[in-house]
């Protein structure tokens, strides 16, 4: 089924054109952060996979997947800032920027993660997991609402959800670290040999 419909997940963001559905996702903090944003990420990933190698960044600026994974980290970090969630609901320019940034993050992850060796991959995944966990704890500990668009109890539940995602991504990082290194992976993971002089 996955092979027959490679574009199907990529078309998921089109659902956001349906205003009641978009409102359903964005009117509460948990589905906004933990359903909509991951959905956009998955859609970007699927879109890049359907497009194939031409969706990858040129290797000349993305050695070891560094540029693509930097983008993924930056987008994740930016959308952990509480004001960004409010602004994306109140300013249509930021709303579109959010959709685009997360789609590109998914596409960048698809293109760059296979280029990253174990160390680089674990560094970025661990970094994102740590960031989500920190945000999750802050969301739970803050005595006041961090977003004017959401209630305090939603914020606490979302914080717990962020911790769940942090553990999930942390587990992926550990799995990647413990994965047996094939010769091909080893070549990618190790530093390039110095050229003969």
């Amino acid at each position: 089924m996955r092979r027959r419909l490679p574009w199907a997940p990529a078309a998921l963001p089109l659902l956001l054109w349906i205003a009641p559905l978009r409102h359903l996702l964005e009117s509460r903090m948990l589905p906004h952060m933990l359903v909509e944003l991951p959905l956009l990420f998955v859609a970007g990933w699927a879109l890049a996979r359907a497009l194939g190698p031409r969706a990858r960044l040129p290797v000349v600026i993305d050695a070891h997947g560094l540029l693509g994974l930097t983008w993924v980290s930056a987008v994740s970090a930016l959308w952990m800032i509480p004001s960004m969630l409010d602004l994306s609901l109140l300013d249509i320019r930021l709303q579109w920027a959010k959709y685009l940034a997360w789609l590109l993050a998914g596409a960048a992850a698809w293109g760059s993660l296979p280029r990253a060796g174990a160390v680089v991959g674990v560094f970025f995944l661990g970094n994102i997991a740590w960031m989500l966990a920190t945000a999750g704890l802050l969301f739970q500990e803050a005595p006041q609402r961090l977003c004017v668009s959401y209630l305090l109890d939603e914020q606490i539940v979302t914080g717990q959800g962020l911790i769940f995602f942090a553990v999930l991504i942390g587990a992926l990082a550990v799995r990647r670290l413990l994965r047996p290194i094939s010769p091909a992976n080893a070549c990618r993971a190790l530093p390039a040999p110095a050229s003969a002089e």
């Binding site: 290797v59 000349v60 993305d62 050695a63 560094l66 540029l67 930097t70 390039a192």
Partner: peptide
């Protein structure tokens, strides 16, 4: 991988 792509990559990462 030669040093050139890595240098360009680091430049792009820094700029981003």
């Amino acid at each position: 991988m030669s040093q050139r792509p890595l240098a360009l990559t680091l430049f792009a990462v820094t700029a981003l």
